[in-house]
C-alpha cells in the first residue's frame, strides 16, 4: 500500500524535482497556482510559484527565504529543526516525517495509493495530510486545515535522480528589494 511505497521513497530518494499545480479549495473560492520545485535531502528545497504570480521559497539548510516579486520584499526566518508543514519541508526531511506524523495506509483511488499523516502535536497548521503515490511515483499531496481549506498539490514531470547542485539552494536577494526577518 501507500505506506510501504512512502517508506521506500523515503529510503531511496535523496533528490527530487518536478512541477506542481496547487489548488486551494475554501468555502467561497478555489484558487490555483503552479510552479516548479527541487528538493535535496536533507533539508534543501526550492519551491517556486510561476503562475499566476512569481514567488520563490528557498530552504538552504539554515534559513527559509521567501521572495515575492510583486511585493518586492524578501522575508527570511530560521529553518529550525522542527519540521515545517509545507510539502517541501516534509519531503526534504526523511526522518522528520516519521517523527512528527503518525502514518497509516489510507486506501487508494483511481490508481493512487494514499498515506494519511496525522500530526503528533496539534500545533501544526493542518488537521491531516495525505500523500499519494502512483506506483512508485509521488503523485499528490492533500493538506486540510481546521478552517476547512483543502490544498491539493499535484506533482508532474517528477525526476527522482535530478543532478542538483547546492548552488541551486542558495538564495541571493535581488538588488533594491527589502530583506526583512520574519
Amino acid at each position: 500500500g501507500g505506506l510501504e511505497t512512502l517508506q521506500k521513497f523515503n529510503a531511496d530518494t535523496d533528490g527530487i524535482s518536478g512541477q506542481f499545480s496547487q489548488s486551494v479549495k475554501s468555502k467561497k473560492r478555489t484558487q490555483t497556482t503552479a510552479g516548479t520545485f527541487a528538493i535535496q535531502r536533507p533539508g534543501l528545497f526550492r519551491w517556486e510559484y510561476t503562475q499566476p504570480y512569481k514567488q520563490i521559497i528557498v530552504g538552504d539548510g539554515n534559513t527559509v527565504w521567501l521572495y515575492d516579486q510583486d511585493l518586492a520584499q524578501v522575508t527570511k526566518r530560521a529553518q529550525n529543526q522542527t519540521i515545517g508543514d509545507s510539502p517541501a519541508a516534509i519531503l526534504s526531511n526523511k526522518t522528520a516525517l516519521n517523527a512528527n506524523y503518525s502514518l497509516s495506509d489510507d486506501g487508494s483511488s483511481n490508481g493512487i495509493d494514499y498515506v494519511r499523516a496525522l500530526p503528533k502535536r496539534s500545533n501544526t497548521g493542518y488537521q491531516n495530510i495525505r500523500i499519494g503515490f502512483k506506483g512508485e511515483n509521488l503523485a499528490n499531496m492533500q493538506l486540510k486545515d481546521s478552517f476547512g481549506n483543502l490544498t491539493t498539490i499535484t506533482f508532474s514531470k517528477i525526476n527522482t535522480h535530478p543532478q542538483l547542485n547546492r548552488a541551486q539552494f542558495k538564495f541571493t536577494p535581488p538588488k533594491g528589494v527589502d530583506v526583512l526577518t520574519q
Binding site: 475554501s26 514567488q55 478552517f147 490544498t151
Partner: peptide, 13 residues
Amino acid sequence: IEVKTPLGNSVGV
C-alpha cells in the same frame, strides 16, 4: 480577513 500561508492553509480568521 483570512490570513493564510502560501500553501493556502489559514493561520487565522
